[in-house]
Amino acid sequence: MALNTPQITPTKKITVRAIGEELPRGDYQRCPQCDMLFSLPEINSHQSAYCPRCQAKIRDGRDWSLTRLAAMAFTMLLLMPFAWGEPLLHIWLLGIRIDANVMQGIWQMTKQGDAITGSMVFFCVIGAPLILVTSIAYLWFGNRLGMNLRPVLLMLERLKEWVMLDIYLVGIGVASIKVQDYAHIQAGVGLFSFVALVILTTVTLSHLNVEELWERFYPQRPATRRDEKLRVCLGCHFTGYPDQRGRCPRCHIPLRLRRRHSLQKCWAALLASIVLLLPANLLPISIIYLNGGRQEDTILSGIMSLASSNIAVAGIVFIASILVPFTKVIVMFTLLLSIHFKCQQGLRTRILLLRMVTWIGRWSMLDLFVISLTMSLINRDQILAFTMGPAAFYFGAAVILTILAVEWLDSRLLWDAHESGNARFDD
């Protein structure tokens, strides 16, 4: 018995066209964080690309023209004298008006014999932002004059995390709450300039795509075929072959399989920071003279006294001054041990922890910024005066060393310790 099946006739004509040209192939790229070699397709503007294995951002879609970056830099340069030299806060102490600005706080630190601690604050609040705007201006002028731009481009990517104007702005709020127990506070004209400078700096850093600047100024022929001998440069993120001198053909720094002496430098910085954190938390970090009496505060006791007036601000200072430094030390110690013992479990967790400490590390400088600003506000000789204690130097040095330890660690070593050939990683 035959089955009668109805015929289905399409209502619209289906047209099949042959592909007349070869589909576009992607360029081969190595991930600078996990060293995976993959094919990167062509990316349009405002599109980002991520590593298929570790999800690290390979290409950032946010990109401004150099002219727009230069305009932002010149605007920031105009704001800087007002943000640093004009009063941020006014207080009335014992019937006398006192003005506080950024430069005055750094000068008070240096004047009291601790120039190293003052230079830490100076670099993060004044030096690094000033280098940022002058570097962008150098790129703008240098591109037109045919100057060598490689050193500036190499420095810009590392400079971003040292620009800490946003953290200093939080420190202004913390210092205001600490001082309000002794005097009446009012915002100064410099505060508005400083807030504007923070906003412009944040926007500029978020749109400063150094890798795209490398592509514009020093374009290189990408690798179009897969080759395990391809290496990625950690300076400019170019994937290719080393030249005859073993250097990256684009930025001219040595092109090595792994960062040289990464573990040794990381261990040295980490152990030194552990040693410095002990006096930083045991010795007094601030000293207040009130009517001839002397009151010393460690980091913890200062947080407890701050909690009596504002528990939320005390929580912020606790996280930045105690929780973050010790968390960074514990995480980095764990990561280094996992590399030495070739741990194969929990790779995803370790990668996330490394990215976390990379982002939060700079916030530990908050305590030094609060001390710097408070020193310029309260300084009335023996009637009422505020000065920093010996722990300030140890704390600042420990924070900087932990930042350097994270920067010096080559994250690809975590993958080397893991089993080879993993296309995915999980716990």
Rank of each mutant, 00 (worst) to 15 (best):
I8A: 09
P10M: 10
T11V: 04
K12I: 05
T15G: 06
R17A: 08
I19R: 09
E21Y: 06
E22V: 08
E22M: 08
E22I: 09
R25N: 08
G26F: 09
Y28L: 10
R30W: 00
C31A: 00
C31E: 00
C34P: 00
P52D: 04
I58D: 02
I58M: 05
I58Y: 05
T67A: 09
L69W: 07
A71N: 03
F74C: 08
L77K: 03
M80P: 05
G85Q: 09
G85D: 07
G85V: 05
E86P: 03
L88S: 04
L89M: 06
L89G: 01
I98W: 02
I98T: 02
D99I: 04
G105L: 01
G105H: 01
I106F: 07
I106G: 04
I106M: 07
I106T: 04
Q108A: 14
M109T: 09
K111H: 12
T117F: 02
S119I: 01
C124P: 09
V125M: 07
I126F: 15
P129Q: 08
L130R: 01
A137E: 06
L139S: 02
G142V: 06
G142M: 08
R144M: 14
P151K: 01
P151F: 03
L154S: 03
M155K: 01
E157T: 14
K160Q: 10
K160P: 09
E161G: 14
L165E: 09
Y168D: 05
L169A: 06
V170P: 10
G171C: 11
V174R: 00
A175Q: 02
A183F: 01
H184S: 05
Q186N: 08
Q186E: 06
G188L: 13
F194G: 09
V195Y: 05
L197I: 05
I199V: 10
T204F: 06
L208M: 14
E215N: 12
P222D: 14
P222Y: 13
A223K: 13
T224I: 14
T224C: 14
T224G: 14
R225G: 12
K229L: 12
L234F: 14
C236G: 01
H237I: 13
G240A: 12
G240T: 12
R247F: 13
R247S: 13
R247W: 14
P249T: 11
C251D: 02
C251H: 00
H252I: 05
I253Y: 08
I253D: 04
R256A: 11
R260M: 10
K265N: 09
K265C: 05
W267H: 14
S273I: 06
P279W: 14
A280W: 04
N281C: 10
S286P: 01
I287H: 06
L290Y: 02
G292R: 11
G293K: 10
T298H: 12
G302L: 01
I303V: 15
M304R: 10
A307Q: 14
I311D: 11
I311H: 14
A312M: 13
G315N: 15
L323D: 01
K328M: 00
V331A: 15
L336G: 10
Q345K: 15
Q345S: 12
Q345Y: 15
T349D: 08
T349G: 15
M356A: 12
V357P: 02
I360H: 03
W363F: 03
S364W: 01
D367F: 00
F369T: 04
I371L: 05
I371T: 00
L373T: 04
L373F: 02
L373P: 02
L377R: 01
L377I: 04
A385R: 04
F393A: 11
I400T: 06
L401I: 12
T402H: 06
L409D: 01
S411A: 10
L413A: 08
L414M: 10
W415S: 09
S420G: 10
G421C: 05
A423S: 15
R424W: 04
